[in-house]
């Protein structure tokens, strides 16, 4: 068990879509280890998604939220919070709902404390005026390793612990959101937006839309999470699906069925220990839900990943685009071991 100190800044920034359009966002930036004298140089450098928060059951996690303000919207003195979505038995103070506890004003810090209890896939997001702050991009992936996790021992490199049948060789996030460019434009232009008019024109995996989804991390520095899934034939691949959009989505991988071994950071177990894990070709799930899916990489090849609501495979109406990516399977032994989630 370790003590983990993280510091996330809340600020604004810009992202790009494959058609060259640029969109104003709110978001997170990782300030961990940055000298105090330099943190303000991170204003305006929000990324989509926010930095990965990766911890282990039993860790003591101190997460400092620093509100850096919005350089593009200095008039907008919104506070922010961190809501660890799905944390069991949470207390109000660390739950991040400003109406029910506190928020963090511009220029201030606040330390959230978590001692994770249950492994699985979670998400974090700001809960201050969430309809605006989530759509604008204040979201990020969160995973909790089981207490016995050991990346160097195949029996203990698991999603839910030794003996749970959740061993994996590689893991990837499939983090789904939508982008309503009109809303982002209105917010950037200091205009009101009627959120009940929400009508996205881009559909994103890991903050990117196709074909940017399959580009490397460095190609889009503000959107540092590629969505390309790579494995050697025969390896076990863990997909951590997260939906933090405002729509329901149906994700299919052509030629690859997946076994659902976790949902909402809980193993599918009946009260008597019944193993309710199941296979799926098409995963239909909703905002605020997560799925842990495992497959064994089949024969080498390229397996398309796409949203079976096919109109979401577009960028502002132009095909191909949107929620599309690839599983690339190589001959056994081709890829070196994975350095970290999504890499």
């Amino acid at each position: 068990m370790a003590v983990i100190n993280k510091r996330f800044g809340a600020t604004d920034g810009h992202i790009k879509m494959p058609d060259g359009s640029e969109h104003y966002i709110f978001g997170w930036v990782d300030l961990t280890g940055i000298p105090e004298s330099e943190i303000f140089s991170y204003r305006g450098k929000a990324q989509l998604l926010g930095p990965l928060l990766e911890v282990k059951v039993g860790d003591e996690v101190y997460l400092t939220l620093t509100n850096l303000g919005m350089p593009v919207r200095p008039d907008l003195d919104d506070s922010h919070t961190v809501h660890w979505h799905g944390f069991p038995n949470q207390i109000a103070l660390y739950d991040g709902v400003p109406e029910a506890s506190i928020s963090v004003p511009v220029g201030r810090d606040f330390v959230y404390y978590y001692k994770p209890l249950d492994p699985g896939t979670y998400m974090y997001h700001c809960h201050f005026e969430p309809v605006e702050h989530i759509q604008m991009g204040m979201i990020g992936p969160l995973l909790v390793r089981p207490a016995d996790y050991d990346p160097n021992n195949p029996l203990y490199k698991t999603a839910y612990g030794h003996g749970t049948g959740t061993e994996f060789d590689r893991e990837y996030f499939v983090f789904l959101t939508e982008l309503d460019s009109a809303a982002h434009h209105q917010v950037a232009s200091v205009q009101e937006y009627d959120w009940t008019d929400f009508s996205p024109d881009y559909w994103l995996i890991n903050g990117r839309s196709y074909p940017d989804t399959v580009k490397s991390a460095g190609d889009l520095p503000e959107q540092p999470f590629p969505a390309l899934i790579k494995a050697n034939s025969g390896e076990k691949v863990l997909l951590r699906y997260i939906n933090l959009g405002y729509q329901q989505h149906s994700i299919e991988i052509l030629g690859i069925p997946v076994r659902i071994v976790g949902q909402d950071a809980a193993r599918p177990l009946g009260l008597n220990g019944e193993d309710l894990a199941y296979w799926k070709d098409c995963n239909y799930f909703a905002a605020g839900q997560t799925l842990d899916a495992i497959f064994t990489a089949p024969a080498p090849g390229t397996y398309p990943v796409f949203n079976r609501d096919c109109y979401k495979n577009t960028n502002a109406g132009v095909t191909p685009g949107g929620m599309v990516s690839e599983v690339q399977v190589f001959a056994a032994g081709t890829l070196p071991p994975q350095a970290g989630p999504g890499q």
Binding site: Q263, D264, A266, G270, L271, E274, G288, Q289
Partner: peptide
């Protein structure tokens, strides 16, 4: 038993 845990 087929009951299941969810946060959403």
């Amino acid at each position: 038993d087929l009951s299941y845990k969810r946060f959403t």
